[in-house]
Design a protein around this nucleic acid. Structure first.
Lengths: 217, 217
DNA sequence: GGCAAGCCGTACCGTACGTTACGGTTCGCC
DNA sequence: GGCGAACCGTAACGTACGGTACGGCTTGCC
């Protein structure tokens, strides 16, 4: 499930109007990719270019603000790790997997990642870092406590949470993100995502499930 | 191991000189990303812009030719599937994993993928399809016969080779490619790649290894 | 040698777009 | 009402770059 609002408040001091402008820019970014023009943003947002430059400095500033604005909106739900048994751990992992697949297959995520990848090439700003921080690394921060709790409860067995996380990440995402970014049509229905989430979770538990009985608490 | 030459000959009717020009363009692409200019390519290749346009039509044509030229050079080694036992299967899988990690972590691959991802956004050409076809799908074509052979030999157990392949792909690549594309510094030493290849292979066999004894042939 | 083809280097053209400037309008405040 | 700040819409500026044209050089062929 996607949640508005988050621990890190990136909305800084954005007025309603500024947020509306960034939303317009975001929609345009999804539609036209990195080839959007300042004129187009101004027209779509019904504001003047002068205002865009006053608020965001330059084109890169606008792009960065747009990416951060979206990043502050989309977060993967965090899961409470207490009272954990195998069923609830499985459910949590499936939920994470499902949420993540929904995120990376969304038009918005694809557009943002494309722009960030492009800019990472000409390394003039840190859009890539922003996307990474609010995507892959945010997911890790949310998931690791769950994994640790699973280990504490004797349900999981691993030495390094980072390694375990990365395996889970791979089992869930597989080739989906790179294929979507490269323009492959990949219909991810609700049902397919659910199935993939279950499969990835089963595989993860097959690899990292504790061989012994769960520890009694 | 990376092999020059391949089943699909993409060198079409490229003269030596044309290949040299494309190599220059490729180097520039790695250095400057999608922001390379026709003038820069001409200067680097010591040729005139007129020649570039005569040979490749326009900027997109040059980019496409460059990507295809590189694609025709880099291929993942195919592996003979006969006389298969668990040790040779494991070795094959490790070899595939190691090769793939080397490819996706190379400067050239990163640059090409970045350009292709960017162009997939403004969907004017099919660079994304080219990269996908010579990357992820080429890998699948090479690996699937090995997986099938493993199943025939009673070493592996799966119903769908595509699904098995995608799991392997995920176990090997995990978050590496997206992190690199987004500009994350990720030092992949030879040793780290070797270790990851072994780990991914072990995990894959743990998931898809046949529970029964290998079938006698 | 003469000639044509291919190509290099460079100058040139047109345009798209980032950025700036400015007149006109709204709105809060005194 | 008067005033200033913020902002809209649009026009204008400068530049970078894709694409074209052209003069000169080399090379192979007769």
């Amino acid at each position: 499930m996607l949640l508005a609002n988050a621990d890190i408040d990136n909305s800084h001091a954005l007025t309603e109007r500024q947020q509306a402008v960034l939303d317009a820019a975001l929609r345009l970014l999804v539609e036209e990719g990195d080839s959007l023009t300042m004129t187009a943003v101004a027209r779509r947002a019904s504001c003047s270019k002068e205002t865009l430059y006053k608020w965001f400095g330059d084109r890169d500033g606008l792009l960065t603000a747009t990416v951060q604005w979206q990043a502050s909106k989309v977060r993967v739900a965090s899961v409470d790790g207490r009272g954990l048994d195998l069923a609830s751990l499985t459910a949590s992992l499936e939920s994470f997997a499902s949420d993540w697949l929904k995120v990376i297959s969304s038009d918005t995520s694809i557009a943002l990642n494309r722009v960030a990848v492009g800019h990472a090439g000409s390394g003039k700003d840190n859009l890539g870092a922003v996307v990474l921080e609010n995507g892959r690394f945010a997911l890790a921060r949310r998931l690791k406590p769950v994994l640790e709790a699973g280990r504490q409860a004797g349900l999981l067995d691993f030495t390094d949470a980072e390694t375990a996380f990365r395996t889970f990440f791979g089992l869930v995402g597989r080739d989906v993100q790179i294929r979507l970014l490269l323009g492959d049509r990949l219909e991810l229905t609700e049902a397919a995502i659910g199935g993939d989430a279950v499969r990835a979770t089963q595989q993860f538990i097959a690899l990292f499930g504790a061989k012994t009985e769960p520890r009694a608490l």
